Amino acid sequence: MPRPSPFIEDQTPLDANNLNERTVYAIGDLDALLTQNKTNLVAAINENLESIYALPNKWNATFYLDPISGSDDNPGTGDAPFLTVEKAIESIPPGGIGTIYLKAATTCLINKNIALRGRRIKLAKWGTGDNPIVTTTVSEGTDTVVLNYIGVDGGHINFDKVDLLLPEYDGDKPAHSTYNSLLIPRYNSYGAVGISFHYNKIILNRDFKLINGFNYGGGYDFLVSQFWGTEIVVNSANARLLQAHYSPTALYFGAITITDNTDSNISLPDLIDGISRNSDGTPRNVLANVSL
Rank of each mutant, 00 (worst) to 15 (best):
E231H: 15
R119V: 00
A175G: 05
T135C: 07
L223W: 08
V224I: 15
T128D: 10
N131C: 03
R120M: 07
Y199V: 06
I121H: 12
G154I: 01
G217K: 00
F222G: 07
H156T: 05
N205K: 03
V134K: 03
R117N: 13
N148A: 00
N212R: 14
A115I: 00
N148S: 05
K209L: 01
D130Q: 14
L165E: 09
K125S: 06
V224Q: 15
Q226R: 15
K173T: 01
N200D: 13
G213Y: 02
E168I: 11
T135E: 04
W228H: 15
T230Y: 08
V146D: 09
A115S: 12
A192E: 14
N111H: 09
I202Y: 04
P167V: 02
G194Q: 13
F214E: 07
L147Q: 01
G219K: 08
I157G: 08
I133K: 10
A124G: 10
L210N: 08
S196E: 13
G118L: 04
N188T: 05
S225Y: 10
T128V: 05
E168D: 11
Y187Q: 15
E231R: 15
L147D: 03
D221F: 07
G194W: 09
L204A: 02
Y190A: 15
V152P: 05
L204E: 04
R117S: 11
G155Y: 00
T137C: 04
Y149A: 00
L123S: 06
I157E: 05
I114V: 12
K112D: 01
I121Y: 13
V134C: 13
V134H: 07
G229C: 03
G118N: 04
E168W: 00
G218H: 06
Q226I: 09
G154F: 00
A192I: 04
I121V: 14
W228F: 14
I211L: 13
S139P: 01
G155V: 00
W126Y: 12
L165T: 02
H198M: 07
Y220V: 08
N200P: 06
L223Y: 07
L204T: 02
G171E: 02
N212A: 09
S177D: 11
I211M: 15
L183F: 14
L204M: 03
S225F: 07
A124M: 06
R120Q: 13
A175P: 02
A124E: 12
V193Y: 05
H198S: 08
T142W: 00
D160P: 00
L116A: 13
S177L: 10
L116F: 10
H156D: 13
F214W: 13
R119N: 05
G141E: 12
D207N: 03
L164C: 12
N131E: 09
G154T: 01
G191L: 09
K125V: 04
